[in-house]
Computed example of a mutant assay.
Amino acid sequence: MEEELRYFVAYLENIRKASHNTVMSYHSDLTKMIAYLHGQGMDSVSAVRTTHLNSYVLLLEKDGMAAATISRYIASMKGFFEYLFREHMIEEDPAFTLKPPKVEKKQPGILTIQEMEHLLAQTTEDTPKGCRDKAMLELLYATGMRVSELISLRMEDVNLRFGWILCRDEGRERMIPFGEKAGKALLVYLERGRDAFLKKDTETLFLNCSGAPMSRQGFWKVLKGYAARAGIEKDITPRMFRHSCAAHMAAGGARMHMIQELLGYSDLTAAQIYAGFQPEVKNEYSKVHPRG
Rank of each mutant, 00 (worst) to 15 (best):
P177E: 00
E203W: 05
T237P: 02
L186F: 09
D201Y: 11
D169L: 13
G253E: 01
D201L: 13
G179P: 03
G231Q: 07
Q217P: 06
G171T: 03
I259F: 02
E203F: 09
R242Y: 05
I176F: 00
F277W: 03
M240E: 05
K234A: 11
R255L: 09
L187K: 15
E233P: 10
M155K: 02
E173P: 03
R255G: 04
L166V: 09
Q278T: 04
C245S: 10
K234D: 13
L187W: 08
K221Q: 14
L198W: 12
M175R: 07
F162I: 12
Q272G: 05
L186N: 06
L160I: 08
A250H: 03
A228F: 12
G218C: 07
L268N: 01
L223F: 10
F277D: 02
D201H: 11
Y226W: 09
H248Y: 03
C245V: 04
S210D: 13
P177C: 02
G183I: 05
G193D: 06
I236A: 10
A270D: 08
H243W: 01
L187H: 13
G163Y: 01
K181D: 09
C245K: 03
E191G: 09
R161W: 13
D267Q: 08
G231W: 04
A230W: 09
A212G: 09
R242W: 00
R154T: 12
V158W: 03
R172V: 03
Y189T: 08
C167F: 01
G231H: 04
D169A: 11
M175L: 13
I176L: 01
F178Y: 08
D267S: 14
V222R: 08
R174I: 01
A227T: 15
N208I: 10
K224V: 11
K221P: 07
Y265M: 05
G252F: 05
R192Q: 14
A228K: 15
G218W: 07
E191N: 14
E180H: 13
K221Y: 15
K199F: 08
A271M: 07
G163P: 03
L160E: 02
R168E: 00
V222C: 12
M256D: 00
